Lab assay of single mutants.
Amino acid sequence: LETFPLDVLVNTAAEDLPRGVDPSRKENYLSDEDFKAVFGMTRSAFANLPLWKQQNLKKEKGLF
């Protein structure tokens, strides 16, 4: 999966995202380093959170 810089994904409308980016899964296009910096946890820890908590975190970080 291709990764993009944080500033390309945060608070970006679906139509302005790079081609192929799923707007409902912007976090998947962050590098592992950016993911950890944004969410303060690994991808696996994030995946283990309840869906509502994942969505709330994504909203807080501008990735929803």
Rank of each mutant, 00 (worst) to 15 (best):
N56I: 14
P5T: 07
P23E: 07
F4Y: 15
S24D: 14
S31V: 03
K58F: 05
N56A: 14
R25A: 10
L17Y: 06
R25E: 05
P50C: 06
S44F: 13
R43I: 04
R25F: 11
V38T: 10
P50N: 04
F46I: 00
F35A: 00
A37H: 11
F4S: 03
S31F: 02
F64G: 15
L30P: 01
K26H: 02
F39I: 03
N56M: 14
K26S: 04
A13W: 06
L57W: 04
L49R: 00
V10S: 07
L51H: 13
E33K: 11
L57F: 06
R25I: 06
N11P: 05
T42C: 08
F4T: 03
V21A: 04
L51G: 09
L63H: 03
K58Q: 02
E27P: 02
E33H: 10
S31A: 07
V8P: 01
K53D: 11
A14W: 12
D22H: 05
L17P: 04
F39C: 00
P50E: 07
F4D: 02
L6P: 07
G62D: 05
E60S: 10
F35D: 00
R25G: 05
P5S: 07
A45D: 13
D7R: 08
V10G: 03
P50T: 06
G62H: 06
E33N: 10
A45W: 07
E2L: 15
D34M: 06
S31E: 04
K58W: 04
F64M: 15
A13S: 13
K59I: 12
A37L: 14
F64P: 05
P18L: 04
L1E: 11
A47E: 12
T42I: 08
V38M: 06
M41W: 02
K59M: 11
L63A: 02
D16P: 06
L63Q: 02
L9Y: 01
V10Q: 14
L49A: 02
T12F: 08
S24F: 13
A14N: 14
D7N: 11
P23I: 08
F46E: 00
G40H: 11
L51F: 13
E33Q: 11
N11Q: 09
F35Q: 00
N56T: 12
D32Y: 05
K36Y: 15
P18G: 04
G62R: 04
K58A: 04
A45G: 07
A37D: 11
F35R: 00
G20A: 09
E27Q: 04
D22L: 04
Q54A: 05
K26Q: 05
Q55R: 12
N28V: 12
L1A: 13
D32R: 05
N28K: 09
E60P: 01
A13N: 12
K59P: 00
A47F: 12
F39H: 00
A37Q: 12
K36N: 14
K61E: 04
F39D: 00
S44D: 13
D34P: 00
P23T: 06
T42S: 13
N48F: 10
S31G: 06
N48H: 12
Q55T: 14
A47W: 10
D7S: 14
G62Y: 05
L30C: 03
F39V: 01
N28C: 14
W52L: 08
P5C: 05
S24R: 12
P5V: 03
G40M: 10
G40R: 09
T12K: 11
A47C: 09
V10N: 04
L1I: 14
R19A: 15
T42N: 11
S44P: 08
L17E: 03
L6Y: 15
G20S: 10
A13C: 13
K26A: 06
A45E: 14
L63R: 02
T42H: 08
N28G: 05
T12E: 06
A13I: 09
A45Y: 09
S24M: 15
V10R: 13
A14I: 12
F46P: 00
D32A: 09
A45M: 13
P23V: 09
V8R: 12
V10K: 10
S31Y: 01
D32Q: 07
F35V: 01
D16H: 11
F46T: 00
Q54S: 02
L6E: 02
W52Y: 11
L9V: 02
R43V: 03
L30R: 01
L6M: 09
D16I: 06
T42A: 10
T12C: 10
A14F: 09
D7Y: 08
D7V: 10
F35H: 00
L49I: 06
L30T: 01
Q54I: 03
F4A: 03
G40A: 10
L17V: 06
F39T: 01
